[in-house]
Computed example of a mutant assay.
Amino acid sequence: MTDLHQKIIDLEAEIDALSDSAEQCRKSMVVAKVATGGGILLFAAALLGVVRSDAILLVVGIAATLAGTVFYGSSRSSFEKITEKVRAYEARRAEMIDRMDLRTVQDR
């Protein structure tokens, strides 16, 4: 029983670590959206003449848009893989707990 108990503890630690990684992916996705939006705004402002049209501004706007898009896609893909792994670990943990033959405490 202690071996099963230790495996459950190890799974819970792994679930916590994966949850932290998923949270980091969520934060990265927000940063990527901001970079994409900022790049689009900078590019549009340079094209419309709101800011002095300069080749460097156009390139920076395009680069920020592309980098933000790629970074968002990568973070989202990682987030989905981590979430899938967490669900599998939680299912395995629930299965282990069910096998432990736990008894409920009755009121006296």
Rank of each mutant, 00 (worst) to 15 (best):
A13D: 13
S74G: 04
K27V: 15
R52C: 07
R52F: 11
D98V: 11
L102G: 07
R93P: 02
C25I: 00
A35V: 04
G38D: 02
E84D: 15
L4K: 07
Y89I: 02
E14C: 06
L102M: 15
E12L: 11
G49L: 03
T83P: 02
L66Y: 06
T69V: 08
K33Y: 06
V70W: 11
D10Y: 05
K81V: 10
L48T: 14
I8P: 00
A45V: 00
R93N: 10
E90H: 04
A45L: 11
A55H: 12
D10M: 12
L66R: 07
A22Y: 00
T104D: 10
E90M: 09
A32I: 01
I40C: 00
K7V: 12
L11F: 13
I56W: 12
D20P: 02
V30D: 14
R93Q: 13
S78W: 04
I62H: 00
E84H: 15
Q6T: 13
K81W: 05
K33Q: 10
G73T: 07
I62Y: 02
A67M: 11
C25H: 08
V70Q: 12
L4R: 10
K27C: 11
S74Y: 09
K81N: 15
I8A: 06
S19W: 10
S74A: 13
Q106L: 14
E80Q: 12
I56G: 08
D16H: 14
L42R: 01
F71E: 09
R76W: 01
I40P: 01
G39D: 00
S21I: 02
A94I: 05
T65F: 08
V86T: 04
A91L: 13
G49F: 00
G73N: 11
G61H: 05
L102C: 09
S75N: 04
S21T: 08
G37D: 03
D54I: 05
K85Q: 13
M100A: 13
S53V: 00
A46P: 00
I9T: 14
D54K: 06
A91D: 15
A46Q: 03
F79Y: 14
M1V: 09
M29A: 13
G39Q: 04
V51E: 04
V51R: 00
E23V: 04
R108I: 14
V31K: 13
L41M: 14
T83L: 08
F43K: 02
R103N: 03
A35Q: 08
G61K: 04
G39S: 08
R76T: 06
A32G: 02
R103F: 07
E84S: 15
T2F: 08
G38E: 02
G73E: 07
G38N: 02
D101K: 09
D3I: 13
S75R: 04
K27W: 14
A13L: 12
M29D: 03
V34K: 09
L11E: 09
T69A: 04
A55C: 09
E23C: 10
Y72W: 13
A67V: 12
T65K: 03
Q24F: 07
Q106C: 08
V50K: 02
A94R: 09
S21N: 10
L11Q: 12
A35Y: 03
E80M: 09
V34R: 09
S28L: 09
I56Y: 14
R26A: 11
G49E: 10
Y72K: 06
Q24M: 10
R108N: 13
L58G: 04
A13F: 03
D98P: 05
K27T: 15
S78I: 06
V59C: 07
